[in-house]
């Protein structure tokens, strides 16, 4: 089933907040993931695809409301997004779904050739 525009915004905001830029690496929001998503959707088994979609909806749309922000993740400031994820990391269910998003986010970030080159380059 195709993702809605709102879901796509939640997804991108979640990964950007989950893996922000930290020198020397760009964050998930700083790399072009357009080529990654079709390959992920083609390869992911149903339970992983469903789990990731649930993670996006609950972490980016539901949890900020539960925490009293009354907006979804894309509308929050970077500090507020980070606070939401710190809470998610301590809450049952949200913590499990955050792990799913983390795995997908790390696979996406490190699939970028520029990130691979940065990590593997001698320092």
């Amino acid at each position: 089933m195709r993702w809605t525009r709102a879901e796509l915004r939640w997804r991108d905001a979640l990964l950007d907040a989950l893996l922000p830029a930290a020198d020397p690496l760009p964050g998930a929001g700083g790399v072009d993931l357009a080529a990654f998503w079709p390959r992920f959707e083609a390869a992911a088994p149903a339970h992983l695809a469903l789990g990731f979609r649930a993670a996006v909806a609950l972490e980016a749309a539901v949890l900020p409301w539960l925490l009293g922000y009354f907006r979804t993740l894309p509308a929050l400031s970077p500090d507020q997004r980070d606070a939401v994820l710190r809470r998610a990391d301590r809450l049952p269910l949200f913590r499990d779904l955050l792990e799913v998003a983390k795995v997908v986010g790390c696979l996406a970030l490190f699939a970028d050739p520029g990130v691979q080159a940065t990590v593997r380059a001698p320092r």
């Binding site: 989950l18 790390c106 696979l107 691979q116 320092r123």
Partner: peptide, 25 residues
């Protein structure tokens, strides 16, 4: 593991995770 799986194995989320990932080596 390659870097992606090691990064996903590290604890935390958001800036705390990013700081560890930047220190991945």
């Amino acid at each position: 593991f390659g870097p992606a799986i090691l990064a996903a194995r590290l604890p935390g989320a958001g800036r705390a995770l990013a700081a560890r990932v930047a220190d991945l080596d």
